[in-house]
Simulated scan of single mutants.
Amino acid sequence: MNAFAHHRKFLTVVFCLAGLFAFSLPVLATTPKKTTIDVARTTEVTGPVIYLGDVSNITAPDFFKEELARIDLGKSPRAGRMKQLSGERIKASINAMGLKASDMNIQVPARVFVKRAAQELDPSRVEKALGQFLSGFFPKGDFKVKTFSVRGIELYPQGDLSLVFDKRYTPSNTGRLSVHVEVWVDGVKEGRLTATGSLSQFKPVVVAARRLERGQAITPADVTLRDMDVFGLEPNILTAVDQVLGMVMTRTIDKGDCVARDEFKQAPVFEKGAVIKLVAQKNRLSIVTLGVCKEDGYPGQPVTVENLTSGKLVRGLVTKDGTVEVVF
């Protein structure tokens, strides 16, 4: 019993091995004896260099197939463009490998046409990237791209496309927009664009709440704040009402007009001809008398005063409380 079982097991193993050997015979029979290269007449490539493997179907042992596929046939055309290759040049590049003609079967058209695959850049993508770039100058996000256009967009090679904005750019006070943008694909600079347009930025601005006459001192009822596009306005506009209260207008402006810094001056503590207190100090000695101001007096500014006691003209500094201090 045991001997018979061992004999049957041995036969089973032999038949399995024979079956496996027989199954492998068709594979061995189909192994090619020659290297074949069939070059297509038209091909689309993605990389910057045209390789034989890009334009042909190669049948060869794996290690040799890789070497053939890496044969350099020259630079690729620009993205979206086409380039012609000479069939004789392709054959010459293959033959330069030093292979025997009897071991090779090469099929090459007289002319091979190679096109570079491309991707398009949507202007809306540039506009979106521009908004992110400008947010670095306007961290509060209180700006808007009113008008936008872009020049220089082309077809670009396939790959990871990125936009790099000119770091030297600074926003214009007028809101005019003009910035250069580099286009990079897979770490290679592929072009340059110019984005143009205009910006708006709304901020509260001090405006006249009523018509303000020249020489009029400004009160809280004379001015108010209104949201306005600050681009294109005078560079010396004001954004806080307390900056102008008590000031005197230097020209007449209409209701709703912006109150600019150069349209008013500081109100004097006293006007020319006013009788003021004149204080003269020397060491610990202090003399107080009256005087007539010969010009308008402003806090911290020098002014000429006639001493009513002596009739002499003296110079002193105006204080906030309306006196003039003379230091000997």
Rank of each mutant, 00 (worst) to 15 (best):
L20W: 10
F21A: 15
F23K: 00
S24M: 14
S24I: 05
P26Y: 06
L28Y: 13
T31P: 00
T35H: 02
D38W: 09
V39I: 09
A40K: 12
R41C: 08
T42F: 14
T43N: 07
V45P: 01
I50M: 02
I50Q: 01
G53E: 01
V55N: 02
P61H: 03
D62P: 02
F63N: 11
K65D: 04
K65L: 03
R70H: 14
P77K: 10
L85N: 08
E88R: 15
I90R: 01
N95I: 10
A96F: 05
A96I: 07
M97N: 11
L99E: 08
L99Q: 10
K100R: 14
S102R: 11
N105T: 09
A110W: 01
R111H: 05
R111Q: 11
V112N: 00
V112Y: 00
K115H: 05
R116L: 03
R116Y: 01
D122E: 13
P123E: 08
R125T: 12
V126P: 02
V126Y: 04
E127V: 06
E127R: 14
G131H: 08
F133Y: 15
F133L: 05
S135K: 12
F137V: 04
F137R: 04
G141D: 09
K146H: 10
G152D: 09
D160N: 15
L161M: 15
L161F: 07
L161H: 09
S172R: 13
N173P: 08
N173V: 10
N173K: 13
N173F: 12
G175D: 06
S178P: 05
H180L: 13
V185E: 03
D186I: 06
E190H: 05
G191H: 04
R192E: 15
A195C: 05
T196I: 13
L199K: 00
S200C: 06
Q201H: 14
V206T: 00
R211K: 11
R214V: 07
P220N: 06
A221T: 13
D222H: 06
M228L: 15
V230P: 00
F231Y: 10
P235V: 10
L238I: 10
V241Y: 05
T250P: 03
I253H: 04
C258M: 12
C258H: 06
A260E: 11
A260Y: 12
K265H: 07
K265S: 11
A267T: 01
P268C: 05
P268H: 03
V275E: 15
V275N: 14
K277F: 08
K282W: 12
N283L: 11
N283E: 15
I287Q: 11
V288W: 06
V292I: 11
G297M: 03
V303H: 08
T304L: 14
S310H: 08
V314M: 12
V314W: 06
L317H: 06
L317P: 03
V318Y: 04
T319I: 03
K320Q: 14
G322F: 08
V326T: 07
V326S: 02
F328N: 10
